[in-house]
Simulated assay, not measured.
Amino acid sequence: MAKPHITRWGWTAYAIAIAVIVIDQAVKHWILNVFDLPLRGSVPVAGPFHLTMVWNQGVSFGLLQAGHDLARWALAGFSLAVAFFLAGWARKTERPLLATALGLVIGGALGNLIDRVRFAAVADFLDFSRLYFPWVFNIADAGITVGVILLLADSLFGDSSRK
């Protein structure tokens, strides 16, 4: 039986996903256990940037709040399914922008999945609400958001040979 082929850009996507997970979880560990943000609530950092502890039971940026345990596990299962689907797609990718996008989304989905399994909610703490950005978010959310933007950019501009 032939071994499944993973492209060079597929490996890049996986490396980016691992980096996002490691950075996300390391920062969350520091926020929760070293800096002890849950006891502090909200701390000004610089200008409009604050660290504010929010436990998010919904999806990214607090959308679709899921206070019931069944919803928690449904969201966890959905995150895992998305990550597996995108990992399969990444395995075959031949474009650097697409690999970067997929790696960011996979890493973000798995980073938040880890929180959902460990804490029954996602730890959010990056607060720019003083800039009229109403959501408190985390590194994984940022990875998902930037990854989706890059996916859109890749779909519009990624393969100039199609045009």
Rank of each mutant, 00 (worst) to 15 (best):
V22H: 08
V117F: 15
S60W: 06
A19N: 08
L113A: 06
F35S: 05
W135F: 14
F133Y: 13
I114W: 03
S155V: 05
V45S: 08
Q65H: 15
I149E: 00
A2R: 11
L97P: 01
D24M: 05
K3P: 02
R95I: 06
R162W: 08
K28L: 08
G58E: 02
W11R: 05
F78I: 15
W30V: 12
V54M: 10
N112S: 04
D115W: 00
G107N: 01
L51W: 06
D124L: 09
A19R: 09
L39K: 12
L126C: 04
F137A: 01
I31V: 15
I106Q: 00
A81Y: 07
L98M: 12
G88E: 01
R40H: 15
W55T: 12
N33D: 08
G147I: 06
G41R: 09
L64Q: 00
Y132A: 14
S161T: 14
A121V: 07
A109Y: 01
L51P: 00
P44W: 06
W73G: 04
N56L: 13
D69Q: 13
D69P: 09
H5A: 15
A121P: 01
A26D: 03
A66N: 10
V22D: 06
V27R: 11
R72S: 03
I149V: 14
V82Q: 01
I144G: 00
F49Q: 07
A109V: 03
T145D: 10
L131D: 02
A109F: 02
G147L: 05
A15G: 15
A109M: 03
A83F: 04
D154Y: 14
F128K: 06
A81L: 14
I18V: 15
V43Y: 12
I139C: 00
W89M: 05
I23H: 07
L113H: 05
V136Q: 07
I21N: 00
D159K: 14
L70S: 14
I23T: 12
G10H: 08
I23A: 11
R72V: 06
A87D: 04
G88T: 06
K28W: 08
N112I: 02
P38S: 10
A90Q: 00
W135A: 12
G107L: 00
L151R: 05
T7S: 15
V59E: 02
G62A: 06
G108E: 09
A142H: 04
T12N: 04
S42H: 07
R8C: 12
K28T: 09
L102K: 02
F133S: 02
L131G: 02
G107P: 01
I106G: 00
A71N: 06
P48I: 13
